[in-house]
Simulated assay, not measured.
Amino acid sequence: MRMSKKLYLAIGILILFVGIGGGLFWYARPSENKGDDLAAQQVVERVPVIVGVLIPQTGPREDVGEEMRAVLDLATEEVNRAGGVQGRDVVLKYVDSGCDPDTAQRAMRELIDVAPAAIIGGICRSESLVAARIAQGAGVPFISPAAAAKEYSEIGNMVFRFVPSEVQEGEAAAEAAAKATSTRAAVFACAQDDCRALADAFSNALAVRKIPLVVSGTIATSSQGIGAQIKTLVSNRANFIYLPAGREEAQLFLDALSSSSLKAAVYLPRLEGEESFRYASNTLVYELRLSNPDGTIILQKLAERGWGKGFLSQTTYRSYDILKKLADALTLSSVNNLKTAEVFSKISDWQGVADRYSIDPQTGDLLKASIVPVIVPNQAQ
């Protein structure tokens, strides 16, 4: 019996030494094997972070898509030069929305297939709603610099935007109209659905305040057609004009207004802070004003890269800021193993963006839409 215990003890000691020896042998294995493990880890670390970008590369907002691509490429280059996301480069995957819901749906499926960390985009109303719902269903954060549809923020917690809803903006414009004396309002909107939704929101807000809407319609696209619309405004004594329209249409309208006898306030819900925009000298023009990145610096950087335009839309400026803050969020998400959408509502940098744009980081809604008058030089004298 005693011999048996000693035998068991000897066997146990032998097993222990064999285990220790095996471990030491594994640790001291040839360096090329350890190098293979390290190389594999480095390969994982070098896998790029894909960010999807849904922009109109064709269709009615192709010009905005072109601007956004130039600015997002610039921002991505700067992010990667600064170290990327935990040493991984950010790579943008562009798809064309065409400002069309069916095209956007196909494009979003293409983006989801490449497993992006997040998606930036959504310029037109219908495409934004379709894209946001697909992103929410796939669990991918979707951040829009321009989505104004009221339903947008109701889609889910993966959806963010950097502008007020059409209802909020309509309310803000109606408040401005209510402060004027004997307001007789008019609205001319572009034919696209986002312009029409803004016009409807403004009309509804006027009705609540019992402010008469004396003229409404689709803005003309020619100087002759707009001239006829100005005459209608004059005959109806309109003095507050809501103008959700594209840049070219709005400029034609303001040029025609400047040469008319009509004195009115004009609110441009789609053209905040446009550089090189000519304002009518006999008109008080209102814009929605959000704090944006320094456009002069961004334009200078783009000019150095061969960019020929002297202005950018505010949607484009916001896209630059979104990409930069998204990189911050992805970096912290990687470190803390949190979902990017969760990080958006936690990190200080994103909170800073939310404060700057007056956005509730939990819902993506702009807390308060406000408009400010643009002082035209002729009026200031």
Rank of each mutant, 00 (worst) to 15 (best):
V234A: 03
G217C: 13
P145S: 05
A132R: 14
K309L: 01
R184I: 12
S144F: 11
S260N: 00
D365N: 15
L366V: 08
G273C: 00
G87F: 00
V140A: 10
Y279G: 03
R69F: 02
L284W: 15
G59T: 08
A250E: 15
Y27R: 14
L111G: 07
T331H: 08
Y152M: 07
V51Y: 11
R305P: 00
A280I: 02
K324Q: 14
D102Q: 04
S319A: 15
L74P: 08
A354V: 02
D294T: 05
P116D: 02
A82T: 08
N33E: 13
Q381Y: 03
V18R: 02
P244E: 02
G83F: 07
L312S: 04
A201C: 10
V47I: 11
Q192L: 09
A329R: 05
I371S: 12
R106P: 01
V159E: 06
L14V: 12
F253H: 05
K263M: 01
S97D: 04
V130F: 11
L54Q: 01
S235L: 06
M3Y: 08
G65S: 06
I241E: 01
G121P: 05
T58Q: 10
E287D: 10
S97M: 05
Y267K: 01
F253L: 05
K150F: 08
F311D: 10
R184K: 15
P30Q: 02
Q136F: 08
L323P: 10
S313L: 06
D255T: 13
A138V: 11
Y357T: 02
A75E: 10
I375L: 07
S223H: 07
Y317W: 12
T316N: 15
D360V: 02
F25R: 13
P212H: 13
T331K: 09
G308C: 01
G156H: 05
V335L: 14
G22K: 07
A115I: 11
A40E: 09
I230V: 04
P48F: 07
N282P: 09
I226H: 04
I123M: 08
E169F: 09
D100S: 01
K231D: 08
V159R: 12
I359D: 00
G352T: 03
V44Q: 10
L271S: 00
V79L: 13
V71S: 10
A185R: 08
P164E: 09
P116G: 04
K346V: 11
A197N: 15
V159T: 15
S31Y: 12
L257Q: 00
R61L: 14
A264C: 01
T58G: 12
V47Q: 11
D37S: 11
C195P: 04
R69I: 00
S358I: 09
Y267M: 05
A132P: 13
Y357I: 02
S216P: 13
